Computed example of a mutant assay.
Amino acid sequence: MHLGCERFFQPGYAANLTSAWLPALEGVVDKLESGASVADIGCGHGASTVLMAQAFPRSTFRGSDDHAASVDTARERATAAGVGDRARFEVASAQDFPGRGYDLVTMFDCLHDMGDPLGAARRVREAIAEDGTWMVVEPAAGDHVEDNLNPVGRAYYGFSTLLCTPASLSQPVGAALGTQAGPARVRELVAQAGFSRFRVAATTPFNAVYEIRP
């Protein structure tokens, strides 16, 4: 399952993350080029973390995931890519990842899988700098069922039924946002956590990129 998720999403990250998604965020690339502090939450095997570390050598990246075997793989991938000096990884949940004052916090295709996404959002609010940015990349979704009755939406509903929703339900709180939560639900969630700004910064047929700020 861990390998399959990476194989599904990593090509989209390689094609879009540094070329389109990060540039769509206000002022973020300038900070990364100068030297920013970044937390990549739910980093899995570190595909997103390594891509960012390769593109922005002056910045430091701290990836975290609650799956220890994935963190081990992420460390190996970072070393192999030559970015082990600036991309570090540790085992931690999204509700208690370490550090504060981050210029950028990222979550890639994982917020909807969390049992307690509101708890995670509140932790990000504590950890992010007052002028920082939280980038949430989620599966492309509309706010209504009929918005998602297309080939991609149908695939995501299948994934959600088999993996994403049961994963969330198996954890404390069990919010079960599902892959098709849509921007309105995510906006509501982050507002509850104390964020005041939210916008859809970029989209692809498979993903939506949300820019969230204090």
Rank of each mutant, 00 (worst) to 15 (best):
E211P: 07
V137W: 02
L177Q: 06
A87Q: 06
A155Y: 12
D30V: 05
R125E: 03
F89T: 01
H45N: 14
G182I: 04
V152K: 08
L3M: 12
A155G: 10
L149P: 06
E6K: 13
Y102Q: 04
G153C: 07
A193Q: 07
D30T: 08
F9W: 12
N150Y: 10
V173Y: 04
M135N: 03
E130D: 14
T179H: 08
G178Y: 03
G46A: 09
R197C: 03
I41G: 00
E26W: 02
D147T: 13
V91W: 11
A80Q: 15
R185P: 01
G115L: 02
G12V: 04
I128D: 00
I41K: 01
M114V: 11
A181E: 03
Y156A: 07
D85Q: 14
V137G: 02
V186N: 01
G119K: 05
E26T: 15
R122N: 00
A92C: 08
L3H: 11
Q180I: 09
F9P: 00
G35F: 07
N16Q: 13
E211A: 13
V209M: 08
V71G: 07
A202G: 03
G132R: 00
W21D: 02
W134M: 08
S19P: 06
Y13N: 08
I128T: 04
S168D: 05
R197L: 04
C110V: 15
R62L: 08
A47I: 09
Q192D: 14
H45K: 13
D103L: 01
G4L: 15
Q180P: 01
C43F: 03
Q10I: 04
L149C: 12
G27S: 10
V50W: 10
D113G: 00
M114I: 10
G63N: 05
T106P: 02
R125N: 05
S93C: 09
F56A: 02
V50N: 08
A175T: 15
M107D: 02
A87K: 05
D40M: 09
A74W: 00
A193F: 10
G63F: 00
L51G: 01
A36R: 05
A184E: 14
S34W: 06
S70A: 13
A191Q: 11
Q180G: 09
V83R: 00
V137E: 00
A92D: 01
A208H: 09
R199C: 09
S19V: 10
S196D: 15
A81N: 08
